[in-house]
Amino acid sequence: MAGGSIDAALEAATRKYLSATGIADLKRLSAGASQETWSFDAPTADGLQELILRRAPGGVPESRSTAIGQVREARLIQICHSHGVKAPNVRYVLQPEDGLGVGFVMDRVAGETLAPRVLRDDLYADARTKMAGQSGEAAASIHNVPMGELDFLEEITPLQQWQNTWNAYEKYFLEWSPSPVFDYALRWLKERVPARDRVTLVHGDFRNGNIIWGPEGLRTILDWEIAHFGDPMEDLAWICINSWRFGNIDKPVGGFGRREDMFEGYEKVSGIKVDPERVKFWEIFGSLRWGITCRSMAFTHLTGHDRSVERPAIGRRSSECEADLMILLGRN
């Protein structure tokens, strides 16, 4: 679908649902393989609405096994927002008669998602001292959302997480050449898979890059497409993966803070004491999973599905995760 061809349909939908008098400044922000994001403004009687359209590429839903789809993502975000989670405010969900495919429109939150700016610009210097604690508080608020309202989500147990990762390793590595580091990590993890006990809503991609920051700190959490029920400690670990520290290797939480401060914020909101060993399990698991995911992205290029120089380059980033794993697992 050509860039500008959604104009008329989006304007009609925004007139219908938000009583807007038109739309302006429509811009495509990203064209990911799983999501399209557009920014636009809509004047209404209540003033100018600053909005984001998120929809499946070309409006056509994709049956990716780990993604929940835009319709469920919109419902999830609405429910989280209603429980005080810092999730975007969904304004309307696209219907088939709108002719825009599958997706939804939400309020656009001003701020910064680009981690290198958040980690280095003076504008965020004060926020950086609070980000770890705020991340813990935000994760706890996600994990507090009543699961009864989320019956459209599926659970992924710790053992299933391990199995899914093994399956991906088999598919993307074993057929070509195994990685002894990944084989080591897979066995180390298999021998330590935590028991399924506390199960909550898990964001699944809670990291620096999916958070909108302002000079005062955390504003909004984005990208809910791989949310599921599972071990809540997955979220506290994923934000610590070295890949999301953007060079600040000694600031484990997102490149900006200390684990202790995140745990304190988490405990304040959830009332639940964090077991650092359990978080470490998920951090090792996350590094491994990201390493395998990087390789899988190369295959979307290699199979001709989505040809781009970026994809094979990402594929080679699996060796970054091998190094992260040996720091986490080694004796040095």
């Binding site: 580091v181 060796s319 970054e320 091998e322 190094a323 794993l325 040996m326 720091i327 080694g330 040095n332």
Partner: peptide
Amino acid sequence: LEHLRQVAVENLGVDNPKYSA
């Protein structure tokens, strides 16, 4: 463990030696 550490260093030395790890 020493072999695996060296493998990780060797692979990353080719792919992206600028990476923090």
